[in-house]
């Protein structure tokens, strides 16, 4: 018997596909978080941005019949939250954490209310047909990499493209240099002709666009439905992924894959009837997050101005 047969075994295939499906939302949220944190703003509101993206994306796609319109407006919803966060943290110099938490709590209520408003209370859960898997010819037949990377919905490919794109922005473009300057040394950035307020605001909008895409992915690509609080803490897990991935797009992708794999593994474990109570399997990503925080807190470099509001012309 071919010792490598398990690679093409449908169970393994399913596991690999699921890994990617579960990786993408948290990876996108973490990428969004990266832009905010590299500019020195702690974005706790990722959870709320994702939830908004998931709901608005779903509702619009359901109403219009266009998945793409749903994706677009879902991202916009995230961006609007980014603007709100920017208003608070940049204009008002509010505590970044308090505002983020308040936004998240508001969004849980808002999406749930709006869902009932749009689809009626207690209606049978509406569905849309999610983005179908798009098998890339030839590539999709490669063992492991095929199901992992090339038998996915189109949003997955879009998300993959965002990794090198973010990397190019951060390490090759003036914008990335300006973002780094603002996150590391806002006073110096101002002397260099960079507006800290503008860079941070734009970063939060970008953050919202990407996290909103992550949310829209949940409802429009991974499932085809919307559930109350369906993000289930992914926005917070993304913050741990950021730490593990050292706020670098490639690192984030790898760290997110680790979490996606753990999540797929626990789903698979539930399906296989391993005898382990399913609750312990579902705990896995959350425990992993804590392990990551223990192992990586204080290691690696944090943007020096992270979490610190900046006020121009502060006295002395």
């Amino acid at each position: 018997m071919n010792p490598l047969a398990f690679l093409t075994d449908p169970v393994t295939q399913g596991f690999l596909q699921a890994t990617t499906r579960l990786t993408i939302p948290i990876m996108l949220a973490a990428l969004g978080g990266m832009f905010a944190e590299r500019a020195g703003v702690l974005n706790i509101a990722l959870e709320g941005m994702m939830l908004a993206g998931a709901f608005v994306g779903f509702a619009v796609a359901y109403a219009s019949g266009s998945l793409w319109l749903g994706v677009g407006l879902g991202m916009m919803a995230g961006a609007i939250i980014g603007l709100a966060l920017a208003f608070y943290t940049v204009r008002l110099s509010s505590d970044q954490v308090v505002v983020g938490i308040a936004i998240n709590l508001t969004m849980i209520g808002a999406t749930s209310y709006a869902f009932r408003a749009v689809f009626g209370p207690g209606a049978a859960s509406p569905r849309v047909t999610p983005f179908p898997a798009l098998n890339i010819p030839f590539l999709s037949d490669i063992p492991i990499a095929g199901p992992l990377l090339f038998q996915q919905g189109i949003l997955v490919y879009a998300a993959f493209l965002l990794i090198p794109a973010s990397w190019i922005v951060m390490s090759r473009m003036s914008a990335g240099m300006a973002i780094t300057a603002v996150g590391e040394h806002p006073e110096a950035a101002e002397t260099l002709g960079i507006s800290v307020a503008r860079v941070r605001s734009l970063c939060l909008v970008a953050s919202g666009l990407i996290a909103g895409l992550g949310g829209a992915f949940l409802s429009l690509s991974a499932t085809g439905l919307f559930l109350d609080n369906m993000t289930a803490g992914r926005g917070y897990i993304a913050l741990a992924i950021l730490l593990l991935g050292r706020r670098n797009p490639w690192g984030i992708a790898a760290a997110a894959a680790l979490f996606g794999g753990a999540d797929a593994f626990q789903l698979r474990g539930q399906g296989l009837g391993s005898g382990i109570p399913y609750q312990f399997l579902v705990m896995l990503p959350y425990i992993l997050t804590i392990v990551v925080l223990i192992g990586f807190a204080g290691k690696g470099h944090n943007p020096a101005a992270l979490g610190r509001p900046f006020q121009r012309n502060r006295a002395e």
Binding site: R172, M173, S174, A175, M177, A178, A181, A189, L192, G193, I194
Partner: peptide
């Protein structure tokens, strides 16, 4: 060169 366009506006 950060913050000025002397070395190129988008891709310095």
């Amino acid at each position: 060169c950060v913050g000025i366009a002397k070395a190129g506006r988008l891709f310095p």
